[in-house]
Design a protein around this nucleic acid. Structure first.
Lengths: 144, 144
DNA sequence: TTCGTATTTAAGAATTATTATTATTTAGAG
DNA sequence: CTCTAAATAATAATAATTCTTAAATACGAA
């Protein structure tokens, strides 16, 4: 994974994005979350390491990452936009209890849907992307 | 379809919702759209027929409809919340060109996904709802 | 390495969608 | 028809996000 500072700088350079400390820190923070954080969560997350960075810069940088295909936006019925450091197609699980969004790998299901739609298509519609969001609850593991 | 004024009033009465003109007008307007409108679109849409209704009432009424399972919220990566007068499961098409959201019927695909997930499930996750959003573009029909 | 310049940033003001407040109006029970 | 709880219009308040601007910075060229 390209998560070291040097890797990220290279990553940015390749895309012609000026490599600044706020950008590197924000991108790194986004990748470290196990769920998909909001701009505010990222802003709070980087306070210790880099207290000076403003929320506006967090928003601008996240937008830049999305524009350059280094991240994608994720939305919920309620509240704010979340950010996902992946841009390839994958399934999202929305937990109604914790209100968090996490990735879910199921190549079988993805292939099933893709194959079906490749065959059948949608009349009058050009498919670019298929999103599958599964809503529910993370089961509580009861310890003995 | 229960779209006449009397039908809607009955609908409301059954649910113990007080039947007021703004509510009936807003619900009727929501059902008339071919895409899924925002609160603002509905507000603008009812101006002619009922100019006095305030935007706050539109929001409150839409929320009431959602609470009572007469409508559901639909979100996009950008901008505002849209409302859908259906609450059963169905696929949404997001057009990137027109920025509109419309319903798509494909019982075959829905069954395929439901059967697959019924069989396989998701370890540690309780599935409540499956959302399939297909993003792309409505093809332009070129007239000869 | 130092310089010059275009870009980026911090800070906070502005904007926009949505929600809350409140005085007034209204639906519908009795 | 009256009464009362609930709904509405008007508008203020809030919260997420974007914009503005002066100061700071990255980085190519010398």
């Amino acid at each position: 994974m390209n998560t070291t500072l040097a890797d990220i700088k290279d990553n940015f350079k390749e895309l012609g994005i000026k490599s600044t400390l706020p950008r590197v820190v924000i991108y790194q923070a986004l990748m470290k979350f196990t769920h998909h954080p909001s701009a505010e969560e990222i802003h709070i997350g980087i306070q210790k390491k880099y207290p000076g960075v403003s929320l506006a810069t967090v928003y601008k940088t996240l937008d830049l990452l999305v524009q350059n295909n280094l991240a994608s936006k994720v939305v919920t019925d309620e509240d704010k936009v979340r950010y996902d450091p992946r841009t390839d197609q994958h399934i999202h699980l929305y937990c109604k209890k914790t209100n968090k969004i996490v990735d879910h790998e199921d190549a079988g299901l993805e292939k099933l849907i893709a194959d079906y739609l490749n065959l059948k298509g949608i009349p009058g519609f050009d498919i670019h992307q298929i999103q599958v969001n599964i809503k529910g609850e993370l089961k509580t593991i009861i310890k003995k």
